[in-house]
């Protein structure tokens, strides 16, 4: 793909590894928060491609594993703060499920910094920008993930 070549070129020119991130954002809080970051013209790295889902509770563990399997270097799931869920309690289910995914990934040797969950409210544009910036910063030293169970 042309843009993939371009991304690689950019990475080569700057001589720096650019991690590929898939960010699952809930529609009501985190996606709205990322909108606010945009409205506020906050700058953050372009590594994360957002997928807006209705609720963090709808993020099945298979989405996360699949993103890694398709070559993501990092995966983020972001939802409303506990108690603020637009759907009342979807994020509580998400929290429990994602806790388990995280422990499982760590157990098979995936660096803890490759998978992250955050609470970002619709008012937290700054926090969203920070979450992405931090994630990219933490992923860079880890290098490419090279899929699940692949030799590095």
């Amino acid at each position: 793909m042309a843009e993939a070549v371009e991304v690689r070129k950019v990475a080569q020119e700057s001589g720096e590894f650019e991690p590929k991130i898939v960010a699952f954002l809930c529609k009501w809080c985190s996606s709205a928060g990322s909108d606010l970051a945009g409205v506020s013209r906050l700058q953050y790295p372009s590594n994360a491609v957002p997928i807006t889902v209705p609720c963090s509770g709808s993020v099945s563990p298979i989405y996360i594993l699949s993103a890694f399997n398709k070559g993501a270097d990092g995966v983020l799931v972001s939802g409303c703060h506990p108690g603020d869920c637009h759907y009342l309690k979807g994020n509580f289910f998400a929290r429990r499920r994602i806790y388990l995914v995280q422990k499982l990934l760590q157990f098979i040797g995936v660096e803890p910094n490759r998978f992250r969950m955050s609470w970002v409210s619709a008012a937290e544009g700054t926090k969203y920008a920070q979450v992405i910036a931090d994630f990219v910063k933490d992923l860079k030293p880890l290098g490419p993930h090279g899929k699940l169970g692949a030799k590095r």
């Binding site: 993939a4 990322s34 909108d35 606010l36 970051a37 409205v39 700058q43 372009s46 957002p50």
Partner: peptide, 27 residues
């Protein structure tokens, strides 16, 4: 496909923002 708030407004480098916008649109 939200390529303004989630892309154009938060990045400066056209070489990086354009591929991201393509991915968002393709999704």
């Amino acid at each position: 496909a939200n390529i303004r708030e989630q892309c154009a407004w938060v990045h400066k480098d056209k070489a990086k923002a354009t591929p991201k916008a393509i991915k968002i649109t393709r999704a």
